[in-house]
Design a protein around this nucleic acid. Sequence first.
DNA 1: AACAAAAGTTAGATTAACCTAACATTTATT
DNA 2: AATAAATGTTAGGTTAATCTAACTTTTGTT
Lengths: 224, 224
Amino acid sequence: MAYLQPLSFTEENYLKAIYSLSERAESFDTSTNEIALKTNTKPPTVSDMLRKLADKKLVTYEKYKRVQLTKSGRQVAIQVIRKHRLWEVFLHDKLEFTWDKVHEVAEQLEHIRSEELISRLEKFLGYPTNDPHGDPIPSANGELTQAKRIILSDVGEGKVCYVVGVKDSTSPFLQYLQQLNIGIGTKIKLIERIAYDGSLTISMRKGQQISVSKKFADNVLVTV
Amino acid sequence: MAYLQPLSFTEENYLKAIYSLSERAESFDTSTNEIALKTNTKPPTVSDMLRKLADKKLVTYEKYKRVQLTKSGRQVAIQVIRKHRLWEVFLHDKLEFTWDKVHEVAEQLEHIRSEELISRLEKFLGYPTNDPHGDPIPSANGELTQAKRIILSDVGEGKVCYVVGVKDSTSPFLQYLQQLNIGIGTKIKLIERIAYDGSLTISMRKGQQISVSKKFADNVLVTV
DNA sequence: AACAAAAGTTAGATTAACCTAACATTTATT
DNA sequence: AATAAATGTTAGGTTAATCTAACTTTTGTT
Ligand SMILES: [Mn+2]
Ligand SMILES: [Mn+2]
Ligand SMILES: [Mn+2]
Ligand SMILES: [Mn+2]
């Protein structure tokens, strides 16, 4: 394995962007324009960068074709994501940032270079498995178990989950969510499933229990 | 007061270097070569940077003359120092980094841009007044109260003092300190000064007496 | 004061990261 | 298949931060 000289913030950001774009494609690849969109740059800038990353064996790329991360490029991306998410946990759990503000700061912190810093931070945080948005935190050796999203209705009794999205985007539904004080990242514990109508008793935060209908729970996406 | 667009890491590092170099001069100024030394760059690089910083009204500078921070430049430098020292406290107190390793990481963390991050961090740390090296932490509005410190060599016989900092920050010195189990806050009683070579007999904690050289005692900062 | 040494600047390059305008290739649609 | 649209690359330029080599100014020393 070739020795990798430290990458710049910029290179790390591109790898992270390529990772998240290619993860959501069947073929695990992405395109120049998509990357430009995601990184707020212009396509020519991306072309240059792709050539550079290809030279460093971080992506496989031929001009006019779609790009893929190499194994080594993917490992780098995952390490950056690991750092990003650990910092998000720190900001949220320790510094009490609200979940919608952690991202911007973590975007900077993720580039701090120190192995020791990250392993100590992880220990300090109690080896968390998910960030405040419910996304999984990769392990030090780069393993990432892609949490599969399920609907709240399918969570087991007694299990804890995190809200990661919704299936219904209509106003009444979103307003109801807001009324219940449920948003992305909300940690929910499923207390009981009522067999009669599929409604659920759940608890959030400081344990206030509420009851929600099956119809509602069918439209909330969570990860366990 | 002119609105200041965010400075680059590099610019912040130069301002910090200029601050610390000029603080220790009678005339509160410093020179191109000194800055180059401190920042591990070459004099021409510094010349360029000084012109740029002068344009931004962060330093007063005329070519071939010595340079001084403006009020605004000093404020920026102090804020960077504030961030640096708060992060050092975090690394030392929360992540249990040893004394001699906090600096390198703080050197990176000090450039993270977020007012909110720093104020929350400060609160989380319990509003510390000194960093792990004993140096004072500037307040949010840029005040920095420097306690009078003397070197251990100048403490009178029979007097008691407290370690508040060091003059030498190199690894061998810091390691020797650790070996002697001397750190910030350590209470030291000066038992005897040997006229012959200026070496000192001191006692700490449970009264174990040890002898230290003048060279060593010249680099330990204390308050009586 | 004269000259040598030290300190500091300018000139001219380089590299990374970006851009716009022009060109090339691939793909989609008559 | 021909053409239009979309996508992607090259050419050529900019800015920040750095360097070496050559030059200039200031300072120190006979
Ligand atoms: Mn980032
Ligand atoms: Mn996240
Ligand atoms: Mn720094
Ligand atoms: Mn310090």
